[in-house]
Computed example of a mutant assay.
Amino acid sequence: MDVCKHGRLRCSECDHIQELEEKVQELEEEIERTDNSFANAYMQYQKQYERVKELEEENQRYKAALAKIAFDEKSQFFEMSPKIAEEALKGESE
């Protein structure tokens, strides 16, 4: 039986095994790059999600303030504030 210097049956098998080992290495490197890309994308998603939540909370505060202006008769801007607040609230609800 022919045995190559690596102890395998034939050098052609040895070549094939070496090709497979190289392919495995390439795939492992690709998996690592993909994992890193996914991690970066997920971190960006988390940042954007937090920013959206902040903006939604800010929007709610503005809505509440406008609603108060629109219905607060003691407001020094009472004559103009209802119209401004109503227009702003309409724009928010559309």
Rank of each mutant, 00 (worst) to 15 (best):
M1E: 14
D2K: 03
D2M: 07
C4L: 07
C4P: 02
C4S: 12
C4G: 03
K5L: 12
K5S: 14
G7A: 08
G7Q: 08
L9H: 08
C11V: 06
C11K: 06
S12Q: 12
D15Y: 04
D15M: 07
I17K: 02
Q18N: 13
E19I: 02
L20N: 15
E21V: 07
E21D: 11
E21A: 12
K23V: 11
V24R: 10
E26L: 12
L27I: 11
E28Y: 07
E28K: 13
E28A: 07
E29S: 09
E30Q: 13
I31K: 14
E32P: 01
E32C: 07
E32A: 13
N36R: 14
N36M: 11
N36Q: 10
S37M: 13
F38P: 00
A39V: 03
A39N: 08
A39G: 01
A39C: 04
Y42M: 06
Y45R: 11
Q46D: 05
Q46G: 01
Q48K: 15
E50T: 09
E50W: 05
R51V: 00
R51Y: 06
R51E: 03
R51C: 00
V52T: 10
V52P: 01
V52Q: 05
K53W: 01
E56S: 08
E57T: 06
Q60E: 15
Q60M: 12
Q60P: 00
R61C: 00
R61Q: 09
R61A: 00
K63N: 05
A64H: 14
A65Y: 15
A65N: 10
L66G: 02
A67W: 15
A67N: 11
K68I: 13
I69M: 12
I69W: 14
F71M: 11
D72K: 01
K74Y: 07
K74G: 09
S75C: 10
Q76N: 06
F78E: 09
F78Q: 07
E79C: 02
E79R: 06
P82W: 01
P82T: 10
A85H: 06
E87N: 14
A88C: 11
A88F: 11
L89T: 08
G91W: 03
E92I: 09
E92S: 15
S93D: 02
S93M: 03
E94Y: 06
E94G: 15
